[in-house]
Amino acid sequence: MVAAHALTVDDMREVRAAAQGGRFFALFDPNALIAAIARSGDRAAFAELFDHFAPRVKGLLMRGGASAELAEEIAQETLLAVWRKAALFDPTRASASTWIATIARNLRIDIARRETRSRLSQVYEILDEEPPEQPDATLSGAERDARVRAAMTQLSADQYRVVELAFLEGFSHQDVASRLAIPLGTVKSRLRLALSHLRGRLEDLR
């Protein structure tokens, strides 16, 4: 990661060009790409971010039951918002993935509830402006993400599935229960266990 920060986007492009034809795994560093967009409106950096994140946002939304058209629209809007807000991205507060997932969530609410004058995405934005408390006790965005990921790998397959479904749009606990053909009580207890496991792992380390 340290080495990746030292590479500029141009360097990365050169490396990629040099590696053309061979199998090459580009060092994908979204923080550097977002910084390049903020600094100089770097459209190549934007294209790279788009290629990585737009299909994932679309995939995640479709998994949550959104139509391909709606998921595509939200993915487009999400990446456009990343372009617009690049200067507001603070890697000490959240990883790029987490930041982008949050933007996608807000846009999903705006777009899905367009007809209903929902102001919920503004509420989320106001909360995100709140400074994190106890700076010394607060993990950086990257650290927090790494720990959350590590903790998630320790979930059982059943727990992971429940967490995944619980975080997708439109799935109430009842929906999750029908989808997995398990009782509502089981969904709730699995989710509670999984979340308390995640919480325990994070608090141990904090």
Partner: peptide, 11 residues
């Protein structure tokens, strides 16, 4: 913020 990170990991 932890739960938002879960969302990021799922993404």
């Amino acid at each position: 913020r932890d739960l938002q990170a879960v969302q990021g990991a799922l993404l």
